[in-house]
Design a protein around this nucleic acid. Sequence first.
DNA 1: AGTAAACTCCGGAAGC
DNA 2: TGCTTCCGGAGTTTAC
Length: 278
Amino acid sequence: MPELPEAETIARDLDRLLSGRKLADVRLTRRDIVHGDPRPLSRLLPGRRIRRVYRRGKRVILELDPATQLIFHLGMSGRLTVCPRRRSLDPHTHLTIGIAGTARELRFTDPRRFGGVWCLAGGNQHRGRPLPELGLEPLELTSAGFRRILNRRRQLKALLLDQHVIAGIGNIYCDEALHAARLHPLTKTDTIDPKAADRLLRAVQSILRRAIRFNGSTIRSYRRADGRTGSFQKYHRVYQREGTPCRNCKTPIARRTVAGRSTFLCLNCQRMPVENTS
DNA sequence: AGTAAACTCCGGAAGC
DNA sequence: TGCTTCCGGAGTTTAC
């Protein structure tokens, strides 16, 4: 499930593989993965040069020349890979784009179709569902900025997962960061003192940076742009580790549902603060 | 008004 | 072997 570290890894892979290349033929076999009018894709993309590929939140963005952005959201099961054109297509491959002057193509595959594609070109107003605004980048957050985010009354985990507030954290890295910072996912955000807020921000950032260093976590379907897996799943301390001893205190890791998501935590290290009701 | 929960999309995987 | 249930990112709807 691509979150920030996986999207960052894919974007770096694609930047290395594709920067400076021109796009060629577009083949769209499932039009409803494109938001807005899908027809411009084959009109706008061929011949455009890839200036760079980067990430914003969980999105992978191809910045094209002249001014066009091709934006991929990978959802749960989306893959964005570069491979030889002659290789057989995986099932659920919805979009392929040839890379001019090579025998390779970019492929977007997404069995569950929770992902999507947006093509934004200068002057080409985007009919259909607009691209939702994203919150702040967690790796660029300051201590003061993070305190402002927490300055409302919400469940901590729900807030960290809210892409409109802070962009890029999903279920894996949320649970890992909460455990590292020893905070209960149901903690009300307006009860978190500045010291705990700093501890949490440092946990979020160090886990995301380490996950990027290990090219993300391959739990099920996630692959890098070249098809390789990530390896950060080896270092998960709570995610999908129900019943195994906590690395701090040996208490078996518990599983709960929070904000509609399965949530892994240590009930000893991550205590729910008692609210002062007086 | 702001927050939270339920519902929806979908197919792979787990469980019975 | 085959059926049912679970799962989740994020938008929408509903309730408090």
